[in-house]
């Protein structure tokens, strides 16, 4: 396997990576809280910004810490389908809800 020095190096790299991920998440989270309390004109805009911030955090955790990005394509395909079905579930439910004629 790896010789000792390269594995030590990769461990150091992991520590650096972990630290930067944590810092970014912390910053994004604080921004998110800030935006949520900011006097924005539109509540929809605020929700959208907050969700975008959450999305950034999620991508960091999934992409870096869960190393989805480096993963094999079996897992990629699986996740893609899952997300698709989740979107279908929520999207179609909401569409059905919105399309229902009101009495």
């Amino acid at each position: 396997m790896n010789d000792t020095s390269s594995s030590v190096n990769s461990y150091r790299a992991a520590v650096c990576q972990g630290r930067s991920v944590l810092l970014i998440i912390a910053a994004v989270t604080l921004c998110m809280v800030g935006v949520a309390h900011a006097p924005l004109p539109d509540a929809g805009l605020r929700t959208a910004l907050v969700l975008v911030a959450a999305g950034v955090n999620a991508i960091l955790v999934a992409g870096r810490l869960m190393h989805v990005l480096q993963e094999r394509h079996v897992i990629f395909v699986l996740l893609a389908f899952t997300v698709l079905f989740f979107v279908a579930l929520m999207g179609l439910c909401l569409w059905a809800h919105g399309d229902t004629p009101k009495p």
């Binding site: 992991a14 520590v15 972990g18 991920v21 989270t29 955090n57 955790v61 870096r64 810490l65």
Partner: peptide
């Protein structure tokens, strides 16, 4: 929780 995610990663 984010910190703990990083520690598991490490």
């Amino acid at each position: 929780l984010a910190a703990s995610a990083v520690t598991t990663f490490l």
